[in-house]
Design a protein around this nucleic acid. Structure first.
Length: 291
DNA sequence: ATCCAGGATAGCG
DNA sequence: CGCTATCATGGA
């Protein structure tokens, strides 16, 4: 057993597709390294490598990884609740190995706050730049990764500091959000005890956060699997496949349709549809080559 | 060059 | 209420 193997734990991950999960537009900082990926789970540097139906994980982080990758989600039961539907069936077959992650709340909120009107590839470059400049430097698997900077760290920056991270008009929103959290004006801790609607109301108090970004945080950080973020891609799929005669249907109507039609795990259905359509019809093909 | 991107929001009728 | 223009940047 070599040093590398000795530093890793092997756990079961039936049905998981790690690479697809980390490239499904939920999270933007994992980087290919050797046969796996390096990144940070909150402040913990982590190496992840898939080997068939098992996962090689940095020793000591097994509980973190199980939670982060949501290995407790019963995917078969979730998919069994879906309506019989050829559009959704095709997406499920294409992207069945995706898990809806449980990301740290601030990191997820801040990252999607900088996602407005941006392509996935650019959200990734912005995310990595902010981490490298203001996050904590962490060592893993012979390389360096960075945590996402805490709100207290970003709150002390100037607008020019964040503009220099190529954030454009999103810089002021990120700075304001960091300052509101750091000052205690808006508390992110304890929200998990509230209903999804109540959490959404709190999140929408941040400038630059509307229903879509709030719903991303509800789904990708709070694990509210019934929540459906409506972005340009999912709106396109829904309009074309489910409302071909109503091209002007509003996002709010699409969201309520999704919850009613796709059911208690509509967020999973949404993620399958998003990933399938983005990689089939999108212009960001070849993106995995960026890793 | 031109268009579009995992949007939000002020301002209009 | 619903609709529109606008915001800053880079990849296709």
């Amino acid at each position: 057993m070599d040093n590398r193997t000795r530093s890793l734990s092997r756990i079961s991950a039936q049905g998981l597709d790690l690479a697809t999960t980390l490239n499904s537009g939920q999270v933007f900082h994992w980087t290919q390294h050797g046969n796996g990926f390096v990144g940070a789970i909150d402040q913990e540097p982590c190496y992840l490598e898939q080997s068939g139906n098992e996962l090689l994980v940095t020793k000591g982080l097994v509980p973190h990884v199980r939670r982060y990758l949501a290995l407790d989600h019963r995917i078969d039961e979730i998919q069994n609740t879906f309506p019989k539907d050829s559009t959704l069936d095709a997406a499920v077959r294409y992207a069945s190995g995706i898990r809806i992650l449980r990301q740290p709340v601030w990191e997820c909120l801040a990252t999607f706050l900088t996602s407005a009107l941006k392509q996935v590839a650019h959200i990734r470059s912005i995310s990595l730049l902010i981490r490298e400049r203001y996050g904590n430097r962490l060592r893993i698997a012979g390389t360096t990764v960075f945590s996402y900077p805490d709100p207290e760290v970003l709150a002390k920056l100037t607008l020019d500091d964040l503009l220099a991270c190529r954030l454009g008009f999103r810089a002021a929103n990120l700075l304001a959000a960091a300052r509101r959290v750091a000052s205690g004006e808006i508390a992110l801790t304890g929200l998990n005890k509230l209903s999804s609607d109540e959490i959404r109301t709190v999140l929408c108090r941040f400038p630059g956060v509307g229903d879509k970004i709030a719903n991303c945080v509800l789904l990708f950080a709070f694990g509210r699997l019934e929540v459906v973020p409506i972005d340009v891609w999912i709106a396109r799929v829904l309009r074309e496949k489910y409302f071909p005669k109503k091209p002007k249907i509003r996002p709010a109507e699409l969201a309520s349709f999704c919850q009613q039609y796709f059911g208690p795990y509509a967020g999973y259905a949404q993620q399958y549809l998003f990933h399938h359509w983005r990689l089939t019809y999108g212009k960001e093909l070849g993106e995995p080559g960026l890793w």
